[in-house]
């Protein structure tokens, strides 16, 4: 277990290094002198000096990386030239919104996927399984940006449900009920996408697990179907489910970006798009770096949980 974790931790460090180099290099994809592109032509000498210090622009490129990295490690991601606030404060105020949407969507997705997958696996190819299979297949082919448009059209515009449309966002601290209302459509959209993945993965894994000899063994003990499903089949299969959730997190964030953008919810996604459109590149860079590192950290965390659920993995 300890050896396994050390190995994973080393891999984590390697990945974070790759991400940091990638994020650093983004600035150099900009055509021309980064300082000019980032600050525009009319920049004051003071602003330029701050940027040069932040990015180490006067030094050779590999040294620039270390200057930049040193700043990052001190929590200094630079200054947004649009809002003139620090990038880290911009991120700090936006990130919780993404967290909230994702957590709600995942609770919904698991709550829907687990019972339906169990129902399907109990009778593969039965009528319920076929209907669920066809439904999940169709949902798989509906991109989140279409789903959210449809939802907004029917729920916010046609039915007129309050606080669900664009620009309805209110922070949790101000009014938590309206806050939940305003995040309900985004969360539902993300939940649908996750549900399809979780349902399909869990279903096929459960079907395989239910063929196992130890399931027949559990039957022969006289345990109820319910108990066999939850205690004997679900636990080994949940490893596949957690794996899917872990892989899913990147796509989830990206889908969240679009949904936020459409409904003008000031999470990371909306902030990112605004920053891209206004060429606020340090904000873009900061968000890309933060999000990538978060995704990797979440993957690592899931790995750890999978290990606890299935003691076989770390032993192999």
């Amino acid at each position: 277990m300890l050896r396994y974790l050390t190995k994973r931790l080393m891999l984590l460090v390697g990945i974070v290094f790759v991400i940091s180099v990638g994020s650093f290099y983004l600035i150099h994809l900009l055509p021309g002198n980064p300082a000019t592109v980032i600050l525009g032509f009319g920049a004051t000498p003071e602003a330029k000096a701050i940027l040069y210090k932040q990015l180490g622009l006067s030094k050779p490129i590999y040294l620039q990386y270390f200057v930049w990295l040193g700043n990052i490690l001190h929590g200094n991601l630079g200054i947004s030239f649009i809002s003139q606030t620090t990038v880290s404060s911009v991120i700090r105020s936006a990130l919780p919104i993404d967290g909230e949407i994702i957590i709600i969507s995942q609770i919904l997705a698991f709550a829907a996927a687990i019972p339906t997958a169990m129902r399907s696996a109990r009778k593969p190819d039965g009528i319920v399984d076929r209907v669920l299979g066809a439904t999940s297949f169709t949902l798989l082919s509906i991109p989140p940006y279409i789903l959210i448009v449809v939802l907004v059209l029917f729920i916010s515009i046609k039915l007129g449900v309050s606080a669900t449309g664009p620009s309805a966002y209110v922070s949790f601290g101000t009014d938590w009920i309206t806050n939940l209302e305003s995040l309900s459509l985004p969360a539902f959209t993300l939940a649908t996408g996750s549900f399809v993945v979780y349902y399909r993965v869990l279903r096929s894994d459960l079907i395989a697990t239910l063929q196992e000899e130890f399931i027949t063994m559990a039957r022969s003990k006289g345990l109820s179907q319910r108990r066999i499903m939850w205690r004997h089949a679900f636990r080994p299969s949940s490893v596949a489910l957690l794996g899917a959730a872990s892989v899913n997190i990147g796509g989830l964030l990206a889908a969240g970006f679009i949904v936020q953008y459409l409904l003008q919810i000031p999470g990371l996604g909306y902030t990112l798009i605004l920053a891209i459109n206004s060429s606020d590149f340090l904000v873009v860079q900061g968000i890309v770096l933060t999000v990538s590192v978060l995704v990797v950290a979440v993957n690592f965390f899931f790995d750890f949980i999978i290990n606890i659920v299935d003691p076989r993995i770390s032993r192999e």
């Binding site: 390697g14 790759v18 991400i19 997190i249 999000v291």
Partner: peptide
Amino acid sequence: MYLLLAFPAIIATIAVLSFWT
């Protein structure tokens, strides 16, 4: 490849496209 795979592809794409103008 596994190192690269850990970099969320969608976010990487968004990032590169927003800078590579």
